[in-house]
């Protein structure tokens, strides 16, 4: 069961897409077609350094601080949205 309202999730998803595009501009189509089920590694091809970029920009964009859990703990786009909404509510 995902958390947050549909609007809230959409808003975070759109902002996340922007960040994903800038994290790796060589793969815009995959980002464009992504859904909450899209896997960050196997579908979008993000490397560990791209993931690091993602976290740094997400912290700035959403005004949150990620825990020390590794970014590799996220599987799908939906997992990231869950984490952000959870953090914003905390």
């Amino acid at each position: 069961m995902r958390i947050g309202t549909k609007e809230e999730r959409n808003e975070v998803f759109e902002a996340l897409k922007d960040i994903l595009r800038s994290a790796d501009d060589r793969n815009p189509e995959a980002v464009e077609n992504s859904t909450e089920e899209t896997n960050l590694v196997t579908d979008l091809g993000l490397s560990s350094v791209s993931m690091l970029y993602l976290v740094i920009v997400m912290e700035d964009t959403f005004g949150i601080r990620f825990d020390d859990i590794g970014v590799q703990d996220f599987g799908t786009v939906g997992d990231v949205i869950d984490y952000i909404i959870n953090k914003k509510g905390a």
């Binding site: 896997n39 590694v41 196997t42 091809g45 490397s47 560990s48 993931m51 970014v71 590799q72 599987g75």
Partner: peptide, 16 residues
């Protein structure tokens, strides 16, 4: 996918 997820992130494959 389960095996891929269990690998250290740098060893994970991007395409299967």
């Amino acid at each position: 996918d389960r095996v891929n997820r269990s690998l250290p992130s740098f060893q994970r494959v991007n395409k299967i």
